[in-house]
Amino acid sequence: MQAQAMSQQKADKVVDARGMACPGPLLEAKRAMASVPIRGVMEVISSDEGTATDVPLWAKKVGHEYLGTVADAGFWRIFVRRMK
């Protein structure tokens, strides 16, 4: 997906994990995903750059679809679609 389109992506659930350190954002993402409807989209916002690497890996591992990441000023917005 294009970066432009990604920044317009709507989310059913937004997890603001800014300020949290590893493994906080990942655990928050996992916890929040339970309340996202199947095929719904979750957005994880993190100020920890490692999260932008980790959340896509987590999504792949547990069977969700990683949609893309938008780098903002000092934080990252990571979009994942719940698949199951």
Binding site: P23, D54, W58, V62
Partner: peptide, 11 residues
């Protein structure tokens, strides 16, 4: 414990 929690989060 960070590794354990990460692994558990990844099912």
């Amino acid at each position: 414990f960070i590794i354990a929690n990460g692994a558990a989060a990844m099912d």
